[in-house]
Simulated assay, not measured.
Amino acid sequence: MPEPLRRTVRLTTPPGDVNTVHDFLAELWPDTEGVSELDRISIETALIELAANVMQHADSDGSGLACEFTIVVAEEAIEITVRDTGEPGDIHLAGAEMPELDAESGRGLALISALVDHVAYAQEDGHNVWRLRRARTRRA
């Protein structure tokens, strides 16, 4: 069994933004072996959505925040941990559902939950900490 691949990127907003996370993922994928396109797209979409939500909602006063994104690609699963120094959120993960079609927001947690097998949020040591996990699909 090969060793899991672990990568981390740290950024401060501004100037860092979701493009930094896109670049981080683009540099990661060539070093992974056998990650299905479905897993890659699901992880990318979930992480970009989470990053955008953190940068938009955890920085309530616009002064910026520090974020750390860690991804571990193992044989059985892909796990992501996101830590940020933003304001603690009033997060309700249970029952996250898509809003009405004409709603302008509110899709983030429902979309993330649909793309990964596990989503958790906690406040730890003065940080918001998100954990996502997606079991890897097996190729036929």
Rank of each mutant, 00 (worst) to 15 (best):
D90T: 10
L47F: 08
G106L: 12
R139N: 03
L101R: 11
R134I: 02
L93E: 09
D102R: 02
D59Q: 02
I78Q: 05
L11Y: 01
T12L: 10
L109C: 02
L115I: 07
T70A: 06
V73L: 02
Y121M: 05
T12F: 10
E27P: 00
N53K: 05
A114Q: 12
N128K: 14
A140R: 12
G64I: 09
D59W: 04
P15F: 09
W130H: 05
E44I: 00
D84G: 13
D102N: 13
D84M: 07
L101Y: 08
I91R: 06
I43Q: 01
H118R: 15
F69S: 01
D17F: 05
P99F: 00
R40W: 02
P30H: 01
A58G: 04
Y121H: 11
N53E: 06
I43C: 12
E97M: 07
S36A: 13
G126M: 09
I112F: 09
D31H: 11
L5F: 07
W29M: 07
R40N: 07
V129E: 13
V116Q: 01
D23C: 05
R134N: 12
I112D: 00
G34A: 14
A26V: 15
W29Q: 09
D117Q: 06
R10F: 01
A96R: 10
F24H: 13
L38R: 11
P2D: 13
L111R: 03
L47N: 06
G16N: 08
T137A: 13
P30G: 08
